[in-house]
């Protein structure tokens, strides 16, 4: 690790549109963890979305427009970190949007090389010790597909969570199966998506977990929404909330304290 004189790594937080809008607490937990790890965190104001909805709908022009925006606004950082495997994964795909040899392509490649999903960043780049937390209870972990298959995120969150001695992790029986979110898929094909998330929640219930953790808010909202509809009292949280000790905030989709 860096010695004391070394400058602190400059990290630009890519908040992601879902976290910004639906669950700001994930953003704050991320900032806290990054600062604890010794990073200097900046949140560029000019950011919205990584462009996945356009990219996965075949709208390459708008995706490239958004990519240029992210490339410009995150040019100054040593690292760009997002609390989402799929958004970080999308930024890593930007080079494909630009012609080989072009200046934008080079800049996109440079950005892709500096971009990380937060859990793998903390574990592999900052190599932090698993944060001590007094979180207790039975949990299970949903590996989101982009993180798992595009970025190879599987052991990192589990290593980080191992710092909570009272946390008991029960793995899902089909931990590598998609939850049915799929971005626009879940609203384009709601019947199929519902069936998939129902299967996923069956597996979650079978683990006996009180809380489901994961690293992608889209999947977590999908899972939380289905659990709520089924009346299942399982809580759903982003892993950074547990790691930062932010579990007094109601879980995803849960009612907030009055006042």
């Amino acid at each position: 690790m860096a010695d004391e004189q070394a400058p602190r790594p400059q990290v630009g937080l890519f908040v992601t549109c879902l976290v910004d809008f639906f669950r700001p607490g994930i953003g704050f937990a991320s900032v806290e963890l990054l600062e604890q790890a010794g990073c200097q965190v900046t949140v560029p104001e000019a950011q919205s979305c990584c462009g996945q909805p356009a990219y996965n709908s075949g709208d390459l022009a708008d995706t490239a427009g958004l990519a240029r925006q992210v490339i410009e606004n995150f040019a100054a950082f040593d690292y760009v970190v997002a609390p989402s495997g799929s958004c970080a994964g999308q930024i890593k795909k930007y080079p494909d949007l630009f012609e080989t040899g072009s200046a934008w392509r080079r800049r996109a490649e440079d950005l892709a090389g500096r971009t990380y999903e937060i859990l793998s960043f903390l574990d592999e780049v900052m190599q932090i010790e698993p944060p001590r937390s007094d979180f207790s209870g039975r949990v299970t972990y949903h590996d989101s597909c982009s993180g798992l298959r595009q970025l190879g995120i599987k052991d990192q969150p589990r290593r980080l969570l191992s710092g909570s001695p009272a946390l008991e992790l029960n793995e899902l029986s089909e931990s590598e199966t998609c939850c049915g979110f799929g971005g626009t898929f879940c609203v384009k094909y709601p019947d199929i998506s519902t069936r998939m998330v129902n299967d996923k929640t069956d597996d979650i219930l079978a683990t006996g977990a009180e809380t489901v953790l994961g690293g992608d808010l889209g999947c977590l909202m999908n899972i939380a929404g289905r659990l709520k509809r089924r009346g299942a009292p399982v809580k759903v949280r982003h892993a950074v909330e547990v790691l930062a000790g932010h579990t007094s905030e109601p879980a995803i989709g849960d009612e907030e304290e009055a006042g």
């Binding site: 910004d20 669950r23 019947d191 929404g225």
Partner: peptide, 25 residues
Amino acid sequence: LAGAWTAGRDFPLPSGKGTFQQQWR
């Protein structure tokens, strides 16, 4: 406008006092 979502699941509403960017500022 979220009928496709709510056909099979509840809709988790935004939590906290504002968007992340609002609160951050």
